[in-house]
Amino acid sequence: MTGIVDIVYAEYNYWIYVTLMMIGFYAMIAKKNLIKKIIGANIFQTAIFLFYISLADITGGTAPILVGGHGGEHVEHAADVIYTNPVPHVLILTAIVVSVSTTAVALALIIRIYNEYGSLDEDVILAARKSLQPEFSEYARQKDVAEVNHQ
């Protein structure tokens, strides 16, 4: 059993990332409330950020800002200092901005949906759409047929 414990401990960042990501994934597909779906998507994205940043880490490494790079101080030789990997940091900085943008647009759409239908529940919204225009939503009709078959 010590082998398994060692494997889990050596890659515990990966286990935490998978757990968080699956929590977000479950919220995205199982919850009916649109706000909770957005929260799930955010947890999912955060898990990926965490995964990338943890991949960049080097034991004993410092932040990727050059030591003594401001001039005036004693500049150590670059090989003497271990820096963590800067490339995932940059990628995740991009991803965070995109995440903020998508969340903002999604929340704005949800506000409009709430003003229109008076509900955030997926089933209520689909039922309201179906009653407005019977052949409007293909998905809603298929869902209805499936429910009838189930009964």
């Binding site: 494997i7 990966y14 479950y26 597909i29 199982a30 080097i58 990997n85």
Partner: peptide, 30 residues
């Protein structure tokens, strides 16, 4: 949904066995 989530998580953990240990400087990426 729970089934899908558990299967996906198990697949990710299985695939993650190839990843380098946390904080290892001797990886291809670094």
């Amino acid at each position: 949904a729970l089934l899908v989530v558990v299967i996906t998580g198990a697949m990710l953990i299985y695939a993650g066995q190839d990843l380098p240990p946390f904080g290892d400087p001797n990886t291809d990426m670094y």
